[in-house]
Every structure is written in C-alpha cells, then in structure tokens.
Nucleic acid binder design. Structure first.
Lengths: 142, 142
DNA sequence: ATTGTTTTTAGAATCATTCTAAAATGGCTT
DNA sequence: AAGCCATTTTAGAATGATTCTAAAAACAAT
C-alpha cells in the first residue's frame, strides 16, 4: 500500500509527480493519501477541504485531481453518467457500485478473473480493464 | 437477435413495452432497431432523425431513450464521464472502448469469464456487471 | 529586489441532461 | 364525427458538473 503519512512523504509524492509542492496541492494530497483508500468526487474533496479550514477554489480541485491522475497517483472512475470519481487505490482492482446509495467499494483484483479476450485491432493496446459490479441494495437505508 | 424490420414489428415492440406507438417513438425505434446493433448518444440519435427528415425534439429523444431503457429494449452504458450511450444489444456482453476515437464495440459475453465474486452484503442483488476494455488505438486515424 | 514562469482564482462559459408548463395528439365514448 | 380526458410532445428555461478565461498571486532563479 502506497500511503503517505508524514509531511515529507506528501511533499516527495507531489514533487515526484513533477508538480510544485504548493500549499493547495499538498493539502489536497494530504486529504487524499493519508487515510485509507478513497473514492471522491471533486465536489466532495472541495467541501471537505473547506470543512478542514483551508480554502481552495473548485477549479484548483479539478486541476489537481487531473494532474494527479495523469501522474498516476489517482485513477479516474466512471460509474455514473455525469459524475466523476477519483480512486486513490491505483493497484489492479475492480469495483462494487451500490446504485441506490452511490457508494463505491473496491473488489480485490484477484477476486475477479478475466478469461480470454477478443483479438484487438492492429496497433491497439489495452490501457485498462474496468469491471463494475452494479448492486441494488434492496434493504432501504433505514 | 431481436431485430425488427417491418413496421408491424416496430409497432408491436413499442406497444409491448407498454408505450403508445406514437409517430416519434416509432420513428426513433425504427432508427434504433432496424439495422444491426448500435451504440448511440441522445444527440446522435436526434441529429440522425433530423437528417432523415422527421423532426423530434431533443427532450423527446431523451424521454424515449429512457423509456426504452426501463422497458428493457435498450441498455444504458457509461464509458465516458458526462456522456451516456445507449446500446441496442441487450444480451449479455461487454465492451471495447477506443478511447481516442470514442468508438464502442461489443465483445461477446462468453469471451470474458468472471471468476469468483466477492461476498455481497445482506440483501444486495447484482443488477449488472459491466466490463469495459479500454483501448488506446495507437495508430493515428490516418 | 526583479523578472519570468507557474499556479491559483473568481466568475463566466459550456455541455449534456432534466424540468416546466403549455400545446398537441391519441384513444375512447357517444 | 364530436367531445372528452389522459398521455405525449415541445420549446425554452433551469440545473449541475466541468472547463475556460484572464487577471492576481505565489514561486524560483537571478
């Protein structure tokens, strides 16, 4: 597990991603990477940081999430039309999506085995395989 | 393959879905179901119908796509944040998504085997398993 | 300090989608 | 065919997530 707890870890992580360790990037990185694995939307992260008492603009949250994603620190996740989640767990794994509550949960990559794949066209490379197990939680959230 | 070619097939199909066979629903159904399998967005279907000379409002296209989806005639597909595709192939299968060109292609369901699944929480039911194989087509679309 | 580059920001702009309330249509019944 | 009521369609406004823009702030290097 790649988990950064100390301030130095965080600074290192951001710098290694080729990004200047600015106040806002560090604060966001701390929120993202110093707990367990998380699935967050931009809005969530934004209000979370406001709640913690440091203000970032929403635009910066979006910028940072994308920068972290292209740097390989995050993985973008498309489960719901019109809402992007970002996953701090970048190891091979899949997802359980509770449609009613909107909650996402990781499924260990080796819990799901993929058999033979179709032949790909010339020159194409698989960039990722997403498996989403959509679940209806029948029990009402009482 | 469930393919409706004659006008009567189309009318039947819409009526069986519990929907009135109105002019716009029939026209849209014809576009959707009388060729091979398709993956369309609302915008695509809308401009396609305008191109064919019959006008539908975009709102009606959205309404109809959703009605067909809940009736089980279509399957909604989330591959790209902020854009919904609708798939006329409702049999068990998965998808190849060409990230660069935005093209979607079906993968026969039995080409991909899923191994053991994680235990689900009490009362939860799997509604669907989506597998998306994301492909970078390295060859430029010359 | 000065300069030049990178980042952040507020607010406007965009895009897909949904909503709204009104007009049109469809399917009865007579 | 005429009238009636429920269903559909529609144009346009509203929404919500995301991106863009141009200006201000922060940063790094001289």
């Amino acid at each position: 597990m790649r988990q950064a707890v100390t301030s130095n870890d965080i600074i290192e992580m951001v710098r290694d991603a080729g990004l200047r360790p600015t106040r806002q990037r560090l604060s966001l990185a701390r929120l993202l990477f110093s707990g367990g694995d998380r699935h967050v939307t931009a809005e969530q992260l934004h209000s979370e940081s406001l709640g913690q008492g440091f203000s970032v603009s929403l635009a910066t949250v979006y910028n940072t999430l994308h920068q972290f994603t292209t740097a390989g620190l995050l993985r973008e996740l498309v489960v719901d039309a019109g809402r992007s989640y970002f996953d701090t767990n970048i190891s091979a794994h899949h997802h359980l999506y509770f449609e009613d509550s909107g909650i996402l949960r990781d499924v260990a990559g080796d819990n799901v085995a993929i058999g033979e794949l179709p032949a790909l066209p010339e020159g194409a490379k698989i960039s990722r395989i997403d498996i989403i197990i959509r679940v209806k939680d029948c029990a009402p959230a009482a």
